[in-house]
Design a protein around this nucleic acid. Structure first.
Lengths: 231, 231
DNA sequence: AATAATAGTGTATTTTTAACACTTAAATCT
DNA sequence: AGATTTAAGTGTTAAAAATACACTATTATT
């Protein structure tokens, strides 16, 4: 034991990941069937235990990579859950993270191995421990963030059409938006590059594709610009 | 050790409290001189170690009470800090909280005992470990929260005048506000009760006192009202 | 050539925000 | 008693932002 703090309790830590994706006009969550006791077989968030020599963020990234194969994706710490009895197995303090991934990028093999499934946020089953509370908080955080930061693009392919983008925000905010006002607002911000290509997968006419331009966004930020979508 | 999770590291947990007060037209922070190694004698947030049988919120409340004697005050979890080397004594994951107290309510004896001092946020000294990072995050969180929730009242006495309230928000947002627009906005929300008493401490004319009415606020919330101050 | 399906566009109205200066009340001073 | 000082209190106007709303354009399919 350490020469400082010799008399304090050492406790078990966990990280749990709320993983969001967007597909088929719906916001979805990647859930697994828990493969250990307590709670074996129940729906659960993907989680893990930070090592003594591992930062929390690092642990969360490791856990995300374990399930999806992905690195360097949007990830934010959500909240630390520390009720004494939240895990019936032992007192475990869990630090929850949420991440936004481009659905389609993840490693299908890995996901199958963990018996994981994409579930629309409108149909989330009962989850083990306090994971439902985490999901609820993650959803509310995502909605708040999406109003003030351009994080929607983390959930879309690099190239996306205006109708796709609008549909994403409608999924996040659970609200229909006016397409003229939406286009006007988002394009007036000036960080989207319009491409010459069209996406013809969902209409005969085809919709022009756009790309988020991070340099332009940074440039705007440095000039005092604030992203804001009012829904 | 437990029958579940037998092979995982148990680690040291801490809670640290960013304690805000408002006085003399300034937002202030209650800081202590750390009384143990490592970092003995340095400026620090008040902290403590959650027991195995104690929830995180509970631990934070205990720590706050230890220093201020106060209970049932506004307190919110801020963030979990988990860099491996953040505390040179040992790997410690610290969950930071921030609280808003009515300055003047705290227990002067206790505070003297801990060698604690109220420091204006504009003059915060260098702090031990990553406590400056915590303070910075707390300030930004407070500013964000104060725009969308009526938490300013937690920092004022029960009865306060309009100029006091405005001065508080100016202190939080670090920005001068127009008094006519401020009054109009805040009074139009409809959750303040105007009293017949006046506060004559800062002018000959005296300023009418107001009280925050939580019932009216709840009533408004249930009708779909959203608090919002644009600064 | 007609049809069907989604993409794309502009304007008028309402609401919200921002800017701005004088009057009022009461204690203090002469 | 009257003048002075100090902060409290009050409304209006102009600008900007948000909202509501309906038709045309493109192209694959029949």
């Amino acid at each position: 034991m350490s020469k400082y703090y010799p008399n304090e309790d050492r406790q078990l830590l966990a990280v749990d990941c709320v993983i969001f994706g967007f597909d088929d006009h719906e916001l979805k969550l990647l859930l697994i069937k828990r493969n250990m006791e307590p709670g074996k077989g129940l729906w659960s968030l993907m989680g893990g235990f930070p090592k003594r020599c591992e930062g929390l963020d690092q642990a969360a990234e490791r856990v995300l990579k374990q399930l999806t194969g992905l690195e360097n994706v949007y990830m934010e710490q959500l909240y630390a859950y520390g009720e004494v009895d939240r895990d019936p197995g032992e007192r475990v303090v869990s630090i929850a993270y949420y991440s936004l991934i481009k659905i389609g990028d993840y490693d299908k093999e890995l996901v199958r191995g963990f018996d994981a499934h994409w579930v629309p946020v409108s149909e989330i089953p009962e989850l083990v421990f306090d994971h439902s509370v985490m999901v609820d908080k993650a959803l509310r955080r995502l909605r708040r963030r999406a109003r003030i930061q351009p994080i929607g693009f983390e959930l879309l392919p690099e190239k996306f059409s205006m109708p796709e983008l609008q549909s994403l925000y409608e999924g996040i905010f659970q609200k229909e938006l006016d397409k003229r006002n939406f286009r006007k607002k988002i394009l007036s911000m000036g960080f989207l590059d319009k491409l010459v290509e069209k996406d013809k997968s969902s209409s005969k006419k085809g919709a022009f594709l756009y790309k988020f331009n991070p340099e332009k966004y940074q440039e705007l930020l440095s000039k005092g610009f604030y992203f804001s979508l009012d829904v």
